[in-house]
Design a protein around this nucleic acid. Structure first.
Lengths: 327, 327
DNA sequence: TATGCCAAGTGAAACGTTACACTACAGAGC
DNA sequence: GCTCTGTAGTGTAACGTTTCACTTGGCATA
């Protein structure tokens, strides 16, 4: 693989000058510049980022630490992060902790050894990996705020309120809640946004906490199938909603004919399942892109206080909600 | 950030010795070894991989180049690759080309600059990015074989045969084919496996090539809704199958009552959509892990001829196929 | 006693790049 | 003719690691 020195030798000029030329710095006549670039092209020169990193202390590399790529929120996020980062010349190094704290810790340790310039992190829970203690590069959080960190997330409470308004508008007043897991901030915000919006008009018939991956515990199944207990089931995310719909269908209850259901996230599949799901869309791609932007600002040293970016969400009405039958 | 020299200075010993100790090489008395390790711990030493890379020429880094993370095949693959690589001490650098050849080319260029030790690549199509010309590190292909490369994939032809057998067993003989994209090897293998299995018993009523992301062109919609043209629609993957089911439902045709449908891949959602999809399961996680293993063998220099690893697949029968109605 | 060998450790060079201080020369201004 | 300034370019020292050839002393063997 050709180095600066090879080019310098070929053109008969100093290494410094070649470095200047290939990095677009001044101090070279146009004619010489052309010769150097020609030689670089000829020899197939690719700058060695590792060497550059050692000299400059910056690797042009970003860590992306996620809990679980098989949750469909994250691939879309990862795609946006990777593409935005790449167009800024940064390579994204992926860590998927498989929802295991040790995975998170190992991943951070590896990223630190590689001296990534920053980490975009969707934390697993409230704990901080011990390996992270003396990490002195910027960190941007996704979705889960913490004191002292930049964070980028959606306005989940707003999503809850939009759903509440939609429930009222379509005539539902007895609500079942399949909320996300207890203790997860984003689940809490969704739930509280809904419940707090119209406390006098909406009656919460029952509420059950469910994992975001959509597996329904027996009590959820019982609640779902108790006829008349609720006319609308508001779910913590789309996976839960899809599971609920299937659970209902298996027991002879049709959505939205017998019961209405809403999701949250607007993952791709909401548009492909039957019935198509009414849900809350959050701009996942924009969140990923923004996280990278915030990171770039941090990296460029324009340091402010930690900043919180919150994106609006939107109601997407499809086929899984219709006015309740009289009875 | 502490360096080998800092430790050497603290312990009063040479840099070489510290390097030997932290890398577990011999040539140090147990007692000295202990002192060095204590100092390393004390100072929070993390080896600088960039510096090591420059000296050794190896970065302990792997590229993973994918067409589209929002296709649910890939997150599962990426997760397996990342976890297997990490447990071998390798960091995975992600490129998502968003199905654009330029993205693939840019990604490879970036990976080359970073001198990754190898690339695991699921090629977009038949073309090779120009930037890849003088890449001299090992490449392991996923899913799409090419002459001269290692490849890890499923036995797609076997999947096709299993589907054909299932079609016969459930009494279907007039088949519609929504095959994957033209020119994509894995799509061709699935299709050929099916078509070649029982050429005398199964009649291909129509065949249309469709993108793997499941968007249906108008002619596909026409074919699907032409009543009686086929009793079973065999789709190139699950996304196509799910789209087909919804397309049918929107036009008043119910699956499996009016038409049966099969998918391919057994992505997670096949179990959540209505009806649950009969499909072919491939061991995605095992494929990802194996790809890393093959890569490690290549990297360790035990070079053989290019090798092809093929995993068995299995039929998963669910609700989207039932015997055809008489008529 | 001389010889060789081993364990324990050292010093310096190199990997490819960038940053810094420097030189050489041409032209402008007085 | 002299200094001043700017342009075009050079040489060298790092960055943190590994590798290689080397030293030193002790101990076993002939």
């Amino acid at each position: 693989m050709a180095t600066l020195r090879d080019i310098a030798h070929a053109v008969g000029v100093s290494v410094t000058t070649v470095s200047n030329v290939v990095n677009g710095r001044p101090n070279a006549s146009p004619e010489l510049r052309a010769r150097v670039l020609a030689a670089a092209e000829e020899l197939g020169y690719r700058p060695n980022r590792a060497a550059r990193a050692m000299r400059t202390g910056r690797t042009s590399t970003l860590g992306l630490v996620l809990p679980d790529l098989t949750n469909p929120f994250f691939p879309e996020l990862a795609q946006a992060v990777e593409n935005t980062a790449r167009s800024a010349g940064l390579l994204v190094c992926l860590i998927d902790s498989q929802s295991r704290p040790e995975g998170e810790a190992d991943g951070f340790a590896l990223l630190m050894q590689h001296r990534v310039d920053g980490v975009i992190w969707c934390p697993l829970g409230a704990t901080t990996p011990p390996t992270l203690k003396d990490f002195d590069k910027p960190i941007v959080l996704i979705d889960r705020p913490r004191a002292g960190y930049d964070v980028v997330q959606s306005d989940y409470a707003m999503g809850g309120r939009l759903l509440a308004a939609h429930a009222l508008a379509t005539g539902h007043t007895r609500i079942g809640l399949l909320s996300g897991p207890h203790g997860v901030e984003s689940a809490r915000q969704r739930r509280d946004g809904f419940v707090g919006a119209h406390p006098d008009s909406l009656e919460i018939a029952w509420e059950i906490n469910v994992d975001f991956d959509g597996t329904l515990p027996p009590e959820a199944v019982t609640a779902l199938t108790r006829r008349r207990s609720a006319t609308l089931v508001v779910c913590g995310n789309d996976l839960i909603a899809i599971s609920a719909i299937r659970c209902l269908a298996e027991r002879g209850l049709r959505v939205p004919h017998d019961v209405s259901v809403t999701g949250f996230d607007n993952i791709r599949w909401t548009d492909l399942v039957t019935p198509r799901l009414t849900t809350i869309a959050q701009p996942i791609g924009a969140i990923g892109a923004k996280a990278v932007e915030v990171m770039l600002e941090r990296m460029s040293g324009t340091a402010h206080v930690s900043r919180r970016t919150i994106f609006d969400v939107a109601l997407v009405t499809r086929d899984s909600v219709r006015p309740p039958r009289r009875g």
